[in-house]
Amino acid sequence: MLYFIEQCLNGVQLGMLLFLLAAGLTLIFGIMDLVNLAHGSLYMLGAYFAATFAAFTDSFVLGALLALVATAICGMVLEVIAIRPLYGRPHLDHVLGTFGLLLFFNELVRLVWGPAGMTLSLPSAMLTAVQIIPGLYYPLYRLVIILVALAVAALLYVVVMRTRLGMLIRAGASNREMVGALGVNIKLLYTLVFGLGATLAGFAGLMQAPILTVQIGMGENILILAFVVIIIGGIGSIRGAFVAAVIVGLIDTLGRAFLPDVLHSVLSVNAAMTLAPAISSMSIYMLMAAVLVVRPEGLFPAASR
């Protein structure tokens, strides 16, 4: 039972990271109608920046803050130079262009930081485990990820639902032309939204960095998961992204943890060991395919799309 709770927490933690990545992706997709395959590159950049700045300043927190600023600047520069000409073009041109950006960033990172991965070590205070309920010790850092990501989600909710900028973002998601016609500086809005998305992606990358190694291509696998999340949640919907991210995180983690035992009860050990990883990896794609077949607009379709 304790093991189950622990795995649930792991699932929620993965879900939180996915949400940080997917929130930016779904905003960019919903508002600018842009398929951004380079979003995972910003996740990777965030992790590399954090590892570099943390080593430089000798402080994890300072390194992380500098990395966030650097990723935001990278994102906005990228938007102005490379992304802006792609708005309004067919989706396939987005795929071609941002796939090119993905190749570019992978190579750029290899040039700057070298082919070997990096590590981002945690401050020693983070290396402990805390007792959340009697008998269950959980790594403090993972708990911090969950709490910080929840705080970011709340902040994002307040910004999007309670501020003028958020109103423009929501308006942009439901009717772009009308927002432009009402005299809003749509170019600036797009740059800001892209920068926000980049920052969130970089944040996800640097939070994940101490758990996994920082390496080239680290954004590719998780990018596809983030796309799954926004498709399940409904394109353009942050609420949908949040719910779907937690669902996907839980299914992925619990599948990996428990499917071998479940299959073992009906199959031979060998068959279970072979099938379980494949099925648990596939399960979220099956969920997405099922959602698309039953509800093609996702669970929480953004209004009027």
């Binding site: 398929v35 989706h91 394109i235 099938l275 990883p277 990896s281 596939m282 997405m288 395919a289 698309l292």
Partner: peptide
């Protein structure tokens, strides 16, 4: 875009089957 993503999902499933 939904078509793009669902075809991607099926390809990923085959990828994981092959991995297994």
């Amino acid at each position: 875009v939904y078509f793009i993503m669902i075809t991607l999902a099926f390809a990923q499933m085959v990828y994981y089957v092959a991995q297994g």
